[in-house]
Amino acid sequence: MATHEEITESLMVFTENYNKNERLKIMNKDWNRIVVVQATDVESLHTLTLLDGVVSLKEGKSNDPDLTVISDSETLADIFYGDITPTEPYNNGSLRIIGSEDDIIRLDFISLMIWGE
């Protein structure tokens, strides 16, 4: 089981790598979304806000998310550190994403562009 701090660190690494990628920022400049990340086995809630192509991270939840990413702490930490692709846990049901199918795919595209295959 990963800790809340580990999930926070993984999200910080994800945010930093995203914001360093100019291409991603241009691609997502019109994709303004609020993404809540929620662990199922530890008390851990984070909100990623994409605004004008830039991502920011804060602890706690937003009441009006476009996407909610729900999984166990280990899977969340691995995904946001880029050690596993989101597709595998999504296809086996250990990762649940609530939101539109297009947004779910976009989130996977972002992960692919940050971490590669």
């Binding site: 795919i105 976009r106 996977d108 595209f109």
Partner: peptide
């Protein structure tokens, strides 16, 4: 096409099928 993309992302199809357009995503 989305199924092919997702299958390539879980390494069950050659990686080339997970290539995405930078312009249109």
């Amino acid at each position: 096409s989305r199924f092919m993309y997702a299958t390539a992302r879980e390494h069950a199809l050659p990686q080339i099928f997970s290539r995405i357009s930078m312009r249109y995503l």
